[in-house]
Design a protein around this nucleic acid. Structure first.
Lengths: 192, 192
DNA sequence: CCGTAAAAGTATCCATCGGATGCTTTTGAA
DNA sequence: TTCAAAAGCATCCGATGGATACTTTTACGG
């Protein structure tokens, strides 16, 4: 009672007691650290230190390191989906998708690194991914009826998007501009 | 002199004394372990144990863990190139490339995970990669003169190959057969 | 020949990591 | 008001990559 009385009303409702909101703050810190150094390098201990907590405390909110990374990825997918909702044309979708991936390379690498098998057991992550796919369906498959055919078309889009972004960020492509990459991938996706 | 006199003639020339050929045997063991559990899981200690040596001895032949993985990747690229030399048509190249990648998924993941920046400082690896690219040039760019245009065409091929294989092995594609994947990627590469 | 420097291998130590156990403190609700 | 569960903490563990310092073996130039 004596603690945390000050401006509690500022936040809708504090979910935790001592730290304020360890879960969401740890997520923010993890996202920042992943963006800075890549998800392979992320350690639970540096996340804990960043939010001023014992490293073992994170296990109260995340089952293990993978679960934390899954949560970071899910949040990122949700943000990407929010961007793609505003896309109008295939070119627009491609541009927004590529720009997000290149502006958040380490995060995009994390997102695409989540094993597909784990998604089936992680509803929040699966839902976030689905939101992104749904937007691709809306944009690229307007005149396709067969669900199987729609899915096939979307997958062809992702093959070029993922392949192109991967080769670009790997430095394999001879340094075209971001704009040139978008144009190239748009053209490849225009055929189908 | 008293040691290793038996059938030394069997091998061209023994490079090392005590273990026989630690470097090449460590490479073989590492390749096997990567294929079994993925390169992220590989530890120097299990490689050392597999060849019956102190883990620190590996540092006499490889600068660090990354150097060992680079060597494994280089050897795999060389094997892939040897297969691709026999390809005759774009469809044939695509089929051979995809079959190798799917038959050696963990190894292929390792090969494509080597940072492009490190290749510039690793001549053997770079040379092995170049052999693979050279075969793609031969097959896909027969009637293209401009070097820049040739490279661009090859990169478009790799965008679909890498993207398609990645999504396939990730389980994102709805379980098409290997044959169906080859057909799909061949069709996507046929346009250009 | 031979003796010495370098190559190859070993033992041991270290910091860091993910994770497990067990404990204390705070909370919220019966 | 009590009490069980949630949240946090201190501590321990095994495994890992890597560093230092040592011994053994080889090969080569006098």
């Amino acid at each position: 009672m004596p603690l945390y009385e000050g401006d509690m009303t500022a936040k809708p409702r504090r979910a935790t007691y001592r730290h304020g909101n360890l879960k969401s703050e740890a997520l923010k810190a993890a996202t920042r650290l992943v963006a800075a150094a890549g998800h392979e390098q992320l350690s639970l201990r540096e996340v804990a230190e960043a939010v001023g907590v014992a490293h073992r405390s994170l296990y109260n909110h995340f089952a293990d390191r993978e679960a934390l990374l899954d949560a970071v990825a899910a949040e990122a997918y949700t943000r990407l989906a929010a961007i793609l909702v505003k896309a109008e044309t295939p070119q627009d979708y491609t541009a927004k998708y590529v720009r997000f991936a290149l502006a958040n390379r380490a995060l995009y690498a994390l997102m695409t690194s989540r094993p597909h098998a784990t998604m089936k057991h992680n509803p929040p992550l699966q839902a976030a991914v689905h939101k992104v796919i749904a937007q691709a369906m809306r944009i690229f498959c307007q005149d396709i009826e067969s669900p199987a055919e729609r899915r096939r078309a979307v997958m062809k889009v992702y093959i070029t998007l993922y392949g192109g972004i991967s080769l670009y960020t790997a430095g394999v492509l001879d340094q075209p501009s971001e704009k040139a990459l978008i144009a190239e991938l748009s053209a490849m996706n225009a055929g189908m």
